[in-house]
């Protein structure tokens, strides 16, 4: 039991991202309002962004900028050993900049489509829209 608890605590970032992802997925499946679904979708995407950001982090590490890399002399950088352990991994964070842009674009397209749907049916509730479609 205590093993399980310590595993959960040691990997808390994964548990957080999975919880967030499931919240988003639940909203997309169960919610009736189209905008709530879109919000759920955004939570889903954010969960994955958090996951990526958390895997780049290290305990006790700092931002990945080499302090003494350029001190005027050609051999300066070589005299300082660079320990990867001292720096967080910047790559996942850079990837997530792109993913955030994608998420924002998706959100924009989704909201634009929701406006089109609203103009067509005068409602954003999915059951009312489906009822209107069935009537025809």
């Amino acid at each position: 039991m205590s093993d399980l608890v310590s595993t959960i605590i040691a990997n808390y970032n994964y548990w957080i991202y999975i919880t967030l992802m499931m919240i988003g997925l639940y909203a997309m499946i169960a919610k009736n309002n189209l905008v709530k679904k879109i919000v759920g979708m955004n939570i889903f995407q954010t969960a994955i962004i958090l996951f990526y950001v958390s895997i780049g982090a290290k305990r006790g590490a700092t931002i990945p900028i080499l302090e003494h890399a350029h001190n005027g002399h050609g051999h300066g950088a070589a005299s300082h050993m660079v320990h990867a352990v001292d720096y967080i991994n910047p790559l996942p964070h850079v990837l997530m900049l792109t993913a955030i842009v994608v998420a924002v674009a998706t959100l924009g397209v989704a909201l634009a489509l929701a406006i089109r749907v609203y103009n067509r049916y005068n409602t954003l509730e999915e059951d009312e829209i489906l009822a209107q479609i069935r009537e025809k």
Binding site: M28, M41, Q45, Y52, L113
Partner: peptide
């Protein structure tokens, strides 16, 4: 627009799953 929005939900989940797998 409605069916395209439904496609967007599903397509986003699909792409996110792919991204997660790559992670």
């Amino acid at each position: 627009p409605l069916s395209s929005l439904n496609y967007l939900y599903m397509g986003t989940i699909g792409a996110c799953f792919y991204l997660l797998g790559v992670g």
